[in-house]
Write a protein that binds this DNA or RNA. Sequence first.
DNA 1: CGTAAATAATTGTTGTTACATTAAATACAA
DNA 2: TTGTATTTAATGTAACAACAATTATTTACG
Lengths: 160, 160
Amino acid sequence: MTTNILMSIETDIKQTSFRSPFHRLLVNLMYTNNWLCDGQMRLLKPYGITLQQYNVLRILRGQSPNPVKVSDITERMLDKMSNASRLVDKLVAKELVMRTECPRDRRACDVVITESGLALLIRIDADQQEWERTKNQTLTDDEATQLSHLLDELRQSSPE
Amino acid sequence: MTTNILMSIETDIKQTSFRSPFHRLLVNLMYTNNWLCDGQMRLLKPYGITLQQYNVLRILRGQSPNPVKVSDITERMLDKMSNASRLVDKLVAKELVMRTECPRDRRACDVVITESGLALLIRIDADQQEWERTKNQTLTDDEATQLSHLLDELRQSSPE
DNA sequence: CGTAAATAATTGTTGTTACATTAAATACAA
DNA sequence: TTGTATTTAATGTAACAACAATTATTTACG
């Protein structure tokens, strides 16, 4: 056993025992996720957009200059919810995206990122890369891949 | 390479490429966390409490019958925020916890879980264990420990 | 002692999310 | 074609969260 000065999850949330390795993992996962989201939010705050809005912008950039339907956005969002419509509202208000009625299906909406939206993303990219770089100092690429694969496996248990 | 029918994160969110293994990990972590929280929320819904309220109750049970201060609750919550006070309000309204003025420091509050709160947790425990059991079918204890350790390492990069 | 600083909790405000409902357009079967 | 079901997005509502400001109490210390 090596000397270990790791701040483990036990220290962080002042809990000394978990029911099982799996239970410890669950708590650790939520805690780490919150830690990551906090960092992301702080990064985005100066740019006046939220994490969710940022995710929508990145989905749109991924397809740009093609339009994306609101339903497609919902499908690709990390947390599925019925608010893609209102998120798009906010982004339209900031003129970061454009929403037009889809000509082929008038129920649907075509959403496209604007030049201004793309420009904002480019400004954020530098900060984002720097942030990722600092967070990425402890894990090797192999470890990151391995961790990601374990998460994939975890989600196998019940598809829903 | 073994045959692989894993639903990987790429399939789930319909994204085919990531900037780096680390970026893929970040997205996977958020996605997996949301997947877990969704499951937990669905489990708790029939009992009329939210995930956050449940976490508060478990913190209180952990110290029961000793009281816990609101500030201690905030400290131990997975997502730190200033709403512990209002969460306690909700739990008091449901008579799952009691709040009394701390005699040693009249600024502070002693919060204790009630019999009714403990009884509710016991009812939930069975469901919770069953839920964990189903989620825990794919990872061995070793893998869970390993995953948890990798998460600890990830958080090492910058303490904040 | 008396005043300033620090601490604990609550409250106000604003924005966000979850969930259900509604409205409009489309698909499709009889 | 017509009626019914389905799909797509928007909206109403209530609960929740983030953040700042406020109140009450305790502590520090000249």
